[in-house]
Design a protein around this nucleic acid. Sequence first.
DNA 1: GTTAGCATGTAAGGAGTTACATGATTTT
DNA 2: AAAATCATGTAACTCCTTACATGCTAAC
Lengths: 199, 199
Amino acid sequence: MLELAILGLLKERAMHGYQLKKRLADTLGGFWQVSYGSLYPALKRLQREEAVEMIFPKEQVGRRKNVYRITEKGDAVFADLLERVGHEATQDGNFSVRFAFFRYLKPEARIRLLERRRALLEGRWADLKESVQRLKEGIDGYTLSLMNHELAATETDIRWLDDLIQAEQRQAQEPAGPRRTRARRLPEAPGLPQRSVSR
Amino acid sequence: MLELAILGLLKERAMHGYQLKKRLADTLGGFWQVSYGSLYPALKRLQREEAVEMIFPKEQVGRRKNVYRITEKGDAVFADLLERVGHEATQDGNFSVRFAFFRYLKPEARIRLLERRRALLEGRWADLKESVQRLKEGIDGYTLSLMNHELAATETDIRWLDDLIQAEQRQAQEPAGPRRTRARRLPEAPGLPQRSVSR
DNA sequence: GTTAGCATGTAAGGAGTTACATGATTTT
DNA sequence: AAAATCATGTAACTCCTTACATGCTAAC
């Protein structure tokens, strides 16, 4: 995950560790805080794997700054990590990190990941809903409030994903000229949050 | 964290590991998935610390089931973990787990934790807002969408906390008879999400 | 009688954090 | 000249996961 983020940022431009941490905190600070204790070892690891290389600026007089640049091999590693299916399911932050680098994916891959994420959230939503209904009597107010809040937040996330999926599909269709908008097959469990058609 | 969750659930009733995992998945499954590989060692650890003890049911004929019960020492450990200040700041799930056991806290402690959580989210919100404004031009659409979505989600969380704080304060005041509702001092940075007064 | 679910555990390892240690450069 | 912040790194440790290993019991 850290490797993915580092390589993704280095694709923009070469940077040293300190800068990487700031950029990381800027963009993903909400869900992702990295410490130097993991960042610097990760850079060394990537360097050993030849996914990044150090640049020695001509004016090597001043303070020591290890500026890293992504290599061709690093590009390949990045692409591989970004599409990898195993990890994105477990933790929430993982999806966000991936999403921040979505522009490097092909449209189909984007839609695939969005759909997978949607399915995951839908499953979680259904589980939560079922738990609330099953336990609603024997549960304290705080836990119930937490679960309902979580339920609402998940619904918002799903609607956000729907909008993104729609946008991707529009974009994928435009190049081929104006086509009929196909209705999406809704995996319709009873009571699931409806996809927002216009929003 | 795991220790906290285990002790909290055992306060309700004695359980064995398998049951604990199911209860955990039920209530906190959305943000918290534990594997047996961490659950069983944690139970042993708690047993060594004498925070829990095993019950040997009279009918010890059938399948082996290690039913654990919380001890007095365990109650103390639980209370300590629940109020601890260090950990709740870093990760999001930590607050949720704590919140699920809010009923075991004194009202003042509840308000204190809610306020602290609010301050944390407010800080994160402000940081994100600032990042969006600063980088808005040089950033790709996906990252921007992610940040705006995160911003909105944080606002929702803050409003939820506001409602909870208000409810706690009402409850804290009622026993002393009907009193004037004091307006809360708003830590007013420019553009911060307003507290919802009625909702 | 075999599949599914109940039940407990261990060993190895992954992914990070905290705390410590050091020193240069810029700002006040 | 002191304080802040830039910049890099290591060692120990935390907390959890994955994969493996075992065996019982209920249901089909």
